[in-house]
Design a protein around this nucleic acid. Structure first.
Lengths: 139, 139
DNA sequence: GATATAATTGAAAATGATTTTCAATAGAAG
DNA sequence: CTTCTATTGAAAATCATTTTCAATTATATC
């Protein structure tokens, strides 16, 4: 998976630097939305010379290549998750932050219709569920 | 409508100041999500002594009383709209920003089920549609 | 491998939005 | 009208993010 991301960077003319690899390593396999600072802290374990600025710049490129996506929440809109394949939506646990994707193909038509009923040509949507994950539910 | 909001403020022990009335007047009837600065600029037409800080403080209280809600978009997450009655979702025109609410009662069950399929107890959701409004469509 | 060159880096400064501080002001109640 | 306290606007502080810039380093070429 890391390889795929590195390949994407290379294919688009970006260099494979230590800073970028450290950032990717942290976020590529995360089930939790991470802020730039959280990525910074975690990635410094592997590459202590890393600067926070490079985290911002790397996240920007990964988002541009659609390898990650920004996650919006009440508590802030500056956290990132790996982007899912195809068209998927998020469920996020409000206790521990565990994130999980689900398919939502069947919703598209519904949204198009609802929009049309109100005079809008629907071109996109945001859907995100909040709840409690199985593990947090037990406690 | 303005009266209802003022009543809500009074009922909760807040004073009815000129600053607050100016802010309310601007946002209460808006079909467009407004940033604190946009509210500030518009409200100063009515009450020139208004400070930006008071706009922030008033928006905070209106949100707390659930009279307005924050709107998240790619271009920023600091704009506000009047809150709709009951459980409604938003459609926003990507060209002019015109916002419109629609009912979404029938979606609740679906979301609960999708969550359960992934081991989550769903407690809330965000749904927002993006598109082009009828007027912008013509151009 | 050594070299050239342009992208990338980290640190520091700048920016922009938001929050806090504080003395002055003005609602609300008596 | 007076008292009391919430609220105000201005200025300063804060926080996340972006820009600037000289030094570094990945990559292509020799």
């Amino acid at each position: 998976m890391v390889e795929k991301w590195l390949e994407q960077l290379r294919k688009n003319g970006y260099r494979l630097t230590e800073a970028r690899q450290a950032v990717i390593q942290v976020i590529v396999k995360s089930n939790y939305a991470l802020t730039p600072f959280q990525v910074y802290e975690a990635a410094r374990a592997q590459y202590p010379a890393l600067g926070l600025v490079s985290v911002y710049r790397t996240l920007e490129k990964l988002e541009e290549l659609k390898l990650i996506r920004r996650v919006h929440q009440d508590c802030g809109c500056n956290a990132y998750l790996p982007q899912a394949e195809g068209h998927q939506h998020l469920i996020i646990c409000q206790k521990c932050g565990l994130a999980c994707y689900f398919e939502g193909d069947d919703l598209e038509d519904l949204f198009t219709k609802v929009g049309a009923d109100h005079g809008y040509e629907v071109t996109g949507h945001w859907l995100q569920l909040f709840g409690t994950c199985a593990e947090c539910e037990q406690k």
